[in-house]
Amino acid sequence: MNLDFTQIVPYIPFMIEGIWVTLQFVLVSILVGFLIGTVLALFKIGNIKPLRWFADAYTSIFRGTPLILQLMIIYFAIPQLTAYDISPFLSAVMAFGLNSSAYVSEIIRAGIQAVDRGQTEAAHALGVPYRQMMIDIILPQALKNILPALMNEFITLTKESAIVSTIGYLDLMRRSQVVGAELFRNFEPLLFVGVLYWSMVMVLTLIGRWVERRLNVGD
């Protein structure tokens, strides 16, 4: 056995900092994904055909190609086509945000459609306009249906985020590789960030359960 964790000790703060770097862009990405995903979901359930087509095509493209390809295209193609030198952070947020909005839109669509039709009818019968009904009546109830799936998406995103290391973004994954290269030992730093990823996922899972409980007050 040739394992020596003492060597990575000086690098621990450097690697732990990666948690924040990773969380930072995952948070921004999930927010972008949630906002765009909500709009796409509303397109999908709405009556305007061109918007419905657009949302379906969008979803199909982003779910039908590898995320790493989308990331590369955004990172390499945008500078080549527009001469705009896009930063790794912005590329990562765009790729993850746009990609996750495709998944999130499906989650939200299903969540909205799972709300009892009677709710819509009751709101209609009271003269509540469509927009207000969506915001105050349907979406809050849909949110309860979709929260577990949404939290799953958040967790998936946190784990998948490791691929941004391929474009040189100094996230948790990348940091373990940097440390590995300096020490000529890869196993220990990899194992260490593995534990960090796992802890992050556990914390997110617990937060998800807590929020879910809070949302269940009416039951």
Partner: peptide
């Protein structure tokens, strides 16, 4: 939408808003 304000409706299965309190159901 405007016309419906003047027409109340009561359903077989109530269709109360489950995420609002009773009073909020009435005042919403």
């Amino acid at each position: 939408t405007k016309a419906r304000e003047k027409i109340g409706m009561v359903f077989q299965h109530f269709h109360l808003f489950p995420h609002l309190t009773v009073l909020d159901n009435l005042t919403y």
